[in-house]
Design a binder for these strands. Sequence first.
DNA 1: GACTAACCGAGACGGTACGTCCCGTCTTAAG
DNA 2: CTTAAGACGGGACGTACCGTCTCGGTTAGTC
Lengths: 211, 211, 211, 211
Amino acid sequence: MRSDFLHQAPKTGPGRPRNRETHAAILAAVAGLLAEGGYPAVSIEAVAARAGVGKQTIYRWWPGKAELVLEHMIALAATMPAPDTGDMIADLRIFLRATCQAWIVGGTGAVVAALMAEAQVNPAFAQLFFQHLIGQRRAALREVLQRGRGRGDLSAGQDLDLLLDMIYGPMWYRLLLGHAPLDDGFIDQLLAGLGLVRKGGESANTPTLSG
Amino acid sequence: MRSDFLHQAPKTGPGRPRNRETHAAILAAVAGLLAEGGYPAVSIEAVAARAGVGKQTIYRWWPGKAELVLEHMIALAATMPAPDTGDMIADLRIFLRATCQAWIVGGTGAVVAALMAEAQVNPAFAQLFFQHLIGQRRAALREVLQRGRGRGDLSAGQDLDLLLDMIYGPMWYRLLLGHAPLDDGFIDQLLAGLGLVRKGGESANTPTLSG
Amino acid sequence: MRSDFLHQAPKTGPGRPRNRETHAAILAAVAGLLAEGGYPAVSIEAVAARAGVGKQTIYRWWPGKAELVLEHMIALAATMPAPDTGDMIADLRIFLRATCQAWIVGGTGAVVAALMAEAQVNPAFAQLFFQHLIGQRRAALREVLQRGRGRGDLSAGQDLDLLLDMIYGPMWYRLLLGHAPLDDGFIDQLLAGLGLVRKGGESANTPTLSG
Amino acid sequence: MRSDFLHQAPKTGPGRPRNRETHAAILAAVAGLLAEGGYPAVSIEAVAARAGVGKQTIYRWWPGKAELVLEHMIALAATMPAPDTGDMIADLRIFLRATCQAWIVGGTGAVVAALMAEAQVNPAFAQLFFQHLIGQRRAALREVLQRGRGRGDLSAGQDLDLLLDMIYGPMWYRLLLGHAPLDDGFIDQLLAGLGLVRKGGESANTPTLSG
DNA sequence: GACTAACCGAGACGGTACGTCCCGTCTTAAG
DNA sequence: CTTAAGACGGGACGTACCGTCTCGGTTAGTC
């Protein structure tokens, strides 16, 4: 019944049907609070007050504030386009640069980091977070890689899941630590370090044993 | 005055000197609470009660519960040995496997993840966390790499900071997500993916462009 | 339309007629909840859930939970017989002992006390409570007294309303305080204290000025 | 530790001592809310807000709002003087008239009625209510009667507890029902009905068997 | 040896948010 | 048009911790 972003059947039986406007008002309040004070500014009480809604109405549909924010982030993530230029390397550049842009410029980085934190402590939420947000991003990136493999841009034996970890891993690491930039140069260095460079190109930074 | 793990001068003037046993009791209480209920079980009130200590005594020395836990983790991390076998690849394997062991088997993974979360939201703490815990681990790993570079196991032009990100990144990513194991095989795959294999070895999973 | 125990006209117009079984189910639910947890256990939501009825159905016929409980108590009170032995003192004894029995043994005392409380705060309910429950009991007792006066057991000038207060007052007082028993002996003492003893009897406890 | 009106020792051990002003502010807030909206206007949240106090501070010292109001009423009741004119009948008149005055004119009647209600439902509170408020009033009235008995105004065999019930009972009954006035005339009728009239006086309303 | 300063336990305090209960109103589909 | 179901805005509950603030009572150094 709960967790609206699971697209559960919109109810069919008797009883007053769910008010879609209320639902929208709640998510709008979440968006506003995130914009103003980030994740820590989001509290069920603040959302209820800002949305002009009873707290119970929120608890009826979401288990807690993490899921509330998650639904908002899922909606945002769904707007990110998946590039398909015919060139895997180019697609990767576009895709990953857009991700970093959203994190740093769009300000979503701090929010997903906070959700990641919540997931460490709340197993039920971790399930939803990984499945619906992380999983969605991984699937999108995997599609780019898979398309590349189909065109022969990637060796057939390549373990895609490992590769996903080796791409997203350093990106998340920099997001969380903030010790180094998440800019276009970083993406290029990252891809180069993984050997993902255009045919015939040079990858000076590729780590190799000497000689 | 604050943040005991910064090794501030132990004070000389008049007045009752600091009680070292009290300090130890507080950290012991933190350890106990972490063991029983993880990071969320740690609260200043719970620590004070368990240590038989006034809350003010805690606030006198630490800004909050995150720093309290951080000091405990720093003490743990300090016990991890830095291998030096003369073979960089072997050293890396030993070092990284030990790290994963501590996270997964030792149960510290969830705690550092929670600290990482706290750092997202608390800039003052982030400073300490990155400098004293993350920084210490990065320095240790960098030393292994640097030693390798000195012996010619690594090309001179290699950007060590980038390499650190590309090693620690995927490890942290798996720690936080828990979607795939952090075992010995993963470490080998990771190093292979970065081209960090013994001279003459095969790295079947290295991503390369076809042909 | 409201307050079913007011015997309002049972409706004649078009539309689905009122369901008598629903009405009974609601009162049965009230009775069950009273038995299990007393007055505080009765809530509109609990009654609706237990009766398998919509809350609106309850609100359509009763203004609130107090009236709901009141109707239940009225039904109970209606079963109490009015004695008529030909001897006023005997009638009083029978009547008042039965009242105390219902309160203490029957467990209705706590409920009427709670209704009395509700009446202090809710004037609309007070009106109904006094008229239909208190009033009914007063009328029954007054009839006993009046019959006695008709037979000459009571002086013609006696103020019956005052007498009612002086009989019911101490009884309610003991019910509410619970500091002393509401047993047969108390009834005898009470009547004796009011001079209501059989002709020629002794009333040792009658308070009189000395001499 | 709790229930301040029990005059518990004001704490001796270590720790910040209780703030008397806070205590006074809370009771003042209770008084204000009672004056403005009666017992139903008193809620822990409202008291805390009006007194500028945390809710926990209230719960630290009182179990709930009933005890809070009780303490206020005890303070009020303590101000009622006990008459001692040398004439028991006169004393009774003064005492009981003052009681009714406080109830009706002073507006305390509704409050004590509400407390009586709470006591029906909350045994722990009932204990306190009966002991500290009801008990105090009964003791005061008993003293008047006892003094009278000492002077011979009352027969030695009179059961004082019964007499207290027969005086307070009708008064409370009228307070709670509100069906008849609680005025000076009522007090006179009541005392007359109990045979408590001045030597040589007439008590027309004394119920007696005819003849 | 008295003074002084800081430490320490205990715990009161104002405050924020939690998650729950129930209120009385409303809005639907089914009968 | 009634009914069961149940969503909704709202108010209050009692709890958990937060970080600050007194207290009384140590426990050193310095004068």
